[in-house]
Computed example of a mutant assay.
Amino acid sequence: MTVARHLPLAALVAALATALAFSPPALAAEEKARTVDFSAEASRPASNDLAVAQLYVEQSGGDPAALAQQVNRVIASALATARAYGDVKVQSAGTSSSPVYGKNGSKIEGWRMRSGLRLETRNVGQLSELIGKLQGSLAVAQVSMQPAPETRRKAADEATTDAIRAFEQRAGLVSSAMGKRYTIRHLNISDGGFRPPQVYARIQASSVMMDSAPAPLEGGDSEVSVTINGTIELID
């Protein structure tokens, strides 16, 4: 009100217009007009040099204790066989049991127990041979080939470098088309992961397969992708 008493009307209007032009909303709109958001992506192949297999035994019976002994005996024998393959890492994949109900669904007539093993190695030959031997008593739930952690990290680092270069190239294209220079305001790098090809096998254990041939495994490559989302500011 004091300003209104001492400034001419035209000067007051000009002062208000200037204040509004540099008010926070106006500054935010101007800043937004100078920024451009976009993304760039790159991928690199990673050798599937790590083989992972899931095997299991599943049996049913009326006596839970006897059933557990049978299943544990099969797993113990499989572990003893696997220990002869030094390059193969073996670990338990868990054990579960569930009741088996009769036709009317109200009475438990037995139990079903399942126990599994997880095998992991970079020696595909050893794993293939071991699976061939274990198929005499275990069923194969899944076999997959994927990059080992260090292999995947190396490919991700290379893809990150490629994605940054792609982002800079696109930023240069945008700024050049606008007749301006640019500076990077913000970058977000996300690892898109990988999709390894998988070989699925569901083979029921039987005595006929005791001397089955080694399972064929083929590695191939996985694509490791990296995406960069960023913001550049255009400069006059």
Results as ranks from 00 to 15, higher is better:
103 K>H: 01
51 A>M: 14
138 L>Y: 08
100 V>C: 12
58 E>I: 13
161 T>L: 01
138 L>M: 12
166 A>I: 02
149 P>E: 07
68 A>H: 05
48 N>L: 00
142 Q>W: 05
99 P>Y: 05
118 R>T: 15
157 D>L: 07
122 R>S: 13
42 A>D: 02
215 A>P: 06
171 A>Y: 01
55 L>N: 05
22 F>N: 07
63 D>Q: 01
67 L>A: 04
209 M>Q: 12
89 K>V: 14
12 L>F: 05
40 A>E: 00
166 A>G: 02
6 H>S: 05
23 S>W: 07
157 D>R: 02
138 L>Q: 09
60 S>V: 13
177 A>V: 04
164 I>L: 13
192 G>Q: 10
144 S>H: 04
163 A>Q: 06
118 R>V: 13
134 L>W: 06
209 M>F: 15
47 S>E: 07
199 V>Y: 12
2 T>K: 09
140 V>E: 11
211 D>H: 15
73 R>A: 12
95 T>G: 09
61 G>R: 02
189 I>F: 13
195 R>I: 05
190 S>M: 06
206 S>L: 13
153 R>I: 04
213 A>W: 06
191 D>C: 03
218 E>V: 14
218 E>C: 04
2 T>R: 02
164 I>S: 02
233 E>F: 04
115 S>M: 00
40 A>N: 03
140 V>T: 15
155 A>T: 03
126 Q>K: 10
29 A>K: 14
208 V>D: 15
90 V>H: 03
38 F>A: 08
177 A>G: 01
41 E>W: 01
14 A>N: 04
190 S>D: 02
28 A>V: 09
177 A>M: 10
205 A>W: 09
132 G>S: 06
182 Y>R: 11
1 M>P: 12
187 L>S: 09
75 I>H: 00
20 L>I: 14
5 R>W: 04
199 V>E: 08
93 A>R: 05
195 R>F: 06
115 S>D: 08
188 N>F: 01
124 V>Y: 08
140 V>W: 02
107 K>E: 15
199 V>W: 12
214 P>T: 09
231 T>D: 04
113 M>Q: 07
23 S>V: 02
20 L>A: 15
70 Q>S: 14
17 A>V: 12
196 P>L: 03
110 G>P: 11
85 Y>L: 00
40 A>L: 08
51 A>S: 13
101 Y>E: 00
183 T>H: 02
60 S>E: 13
33 A>V: 08
206 S>Y: 04
93 A>Y: 05
232 I>K: 08
171 A>G: 07
16 L>Y: 10
35 T>A: 00
112 R>Q: 07
59 Q>L: 14
210 M>C: 09
38 F>S: 03
65 A>R: 15
128 S>Y: 02
45 P>M: 12
125 G>T: 15
164 I>W: 00
124 V>K: 03
48 N>I: 06
156 A>Y: 01
80 A>C: 13
169 Q>S: 11
90 V>W: 11
177 A>F: 04
216 P>Y: 07
83 R>C: 02
141 A>Y: 05
212 S>A: 15
73 R>S: 14
40 A>F: 02
108 I>A: 04
189 I>A: 03
171 A>H: 00
135 Q>R: 15
94 G>C: 08
205 A>E: 03
70 Q>E: 13
56 Y>V: 05
26 A>F: 07
144 S>L: 01
204 Q>W: 08
220 G>Q: 05
106 S>I: 11
68 A>C: 03
117 L>N: 11
128 S>P: 06
24 P>L: 11
